[in-house]
C-alpha cells in the first residue's frame, strides 16, 4: 500500500488517537472534546502567525487519523499556558496540558521544528530555572532576545526598554541578575535532587505505559 492509501485507510481509525493517548501526556482527553470551539475562541494569542490549528481542530485531526498533519502542525507549540481554555472547556478537557503533551511527544520523536519560538522559550526557561533553582529573569530574557542573533536581540531589547525600567523601579526586576547575582534560591541542591527524583519517576511511568 502506498503511503497515501495507508493514510486514507487510517482515516477515522483509532490508530493515531491511541498513539496519542499512550504517548502524549493527557492524550486520553482528546476523545472527550465535543468540538464546541470554546478553547480556540478563548485563546488570548488570537492565533497570530504560526497558529495553523487551534486546539479543538488538532483534537479533531487526531480523531480523523491525520497523523502527518498533526505532527507537522505548529499549533501545539504556540500555547502560552494562559489556561483560559483549560478552565472554560465544558468537557473539562485540560486543553493546555493536552497541547503541551502533544508538543512534547512531537519533540520526543523528533518532529518538533528547529528554533520554534515557544519551544525555545520552554527549553531556555527550564535550563535557567533548574540551574538556579529559580528563574533568573534577566538572563532568561537575554537568551530569548538573542536567540535570533545579536542584532535582533539589541533591537528587541531597545523596544522593551521602557517596560524593563518600569519593572526595575517597581522592584520586580533586579539588574544584578545579569551577573548571576540578585535573588537567590535557598536550597539549590535540594531542588536538583528533587528534579532528579522526578525524572526517575517519570521514566518509570513512561516505561509502564508503553
Amino acid at each position: 500500500m502506498s503511503d497515501l492509501n495507508q493514510e486514507m485507510a487510517a482515516r477515522y481509525k483509532n490508530n493515531f488517537l491511541k498513539e496519542i493517548e499512550e504517548q502524549a501526556e493527557m492524550g486520553e482527553w482528546v476523545k472527550m472534546c465535543m468540538q464546541c470551539g470554546l478553547c480556540s475562541g478563548s485563546c488570548p494569542t488570537n492565533f497570530h502567525s504560526g497558529w495553523d490549528h487551534p486546539p479543538q481542530e488538532i483534537f479533531m485531526l487526531i480523531r480523523a487519523g491525520k497523523r502527518e498533519e498533526v505532527l507537522n502542525a505548529q499549533g501545539m507549540y504556540m500555547c502560552t499556558s494562559c489556561y483560559n481554555c483549560y478552565v472554560r472547556c465544558p468537557r473539562k478537557v485540560p486543553v493546555t496540558h493536552v497541547m503541551h503533551g502533544i508538543a512534547e511527544y512531537a519533540y520526543r520523536i523528533g518532529r518538533a521544528p528547529k528554533n520554534q519560538p515557544t519551544m525555545h522559550l520552554s527549553k531556555t526557561f527550564w535550563t535557567n530555572a533548574t540551574k538556579h533553582g529559580r528563574v533568573n529573569e534577566v538572563q532568561l530574557t537575554q537568551s530569548l532576545y538573542f536567540k535570533d542573533g545579536i542584532g535582533a536581540g539589541i533591537k528587541k531589547a531597545m523596544e522593551m526598554q521602557k517596560e524593563a525600567l518600569g519593572l526595575v523601579k517597581a522592584g520586580r526586576l533586579n539588574p544584578m541578575e545579569a551577573l548571576g547575582m540578585g535573588h537567590k534560591c535557598k536550597d539549590v541542591k535540594g531542588i536538583h535532587a528533587m528534579l532528579a527524583k522526578a525524572e526517575e519517576l517519570e521514566a518509570k511511568n513512561k516505561a509502564a505505559k508503553a
Binding site: G37, L38, C39, G41, S42, R88
Partner: peptide, 18 residues
C-alpha cells in the same frame, strides 16, 4: 460556543470565538 463577550466603545456586546 462563544468564548467570551467583550464590549466595544459604543456599548455593543461583542461575541468572540471560532
Amino acid at each position: 460556543k462563544v468564548a467570551r463577550i467583550t464590549e466595544d466603545k459604543a456599548g455593543n456586546p461583542v461575541c468572540n470565538g471560532v
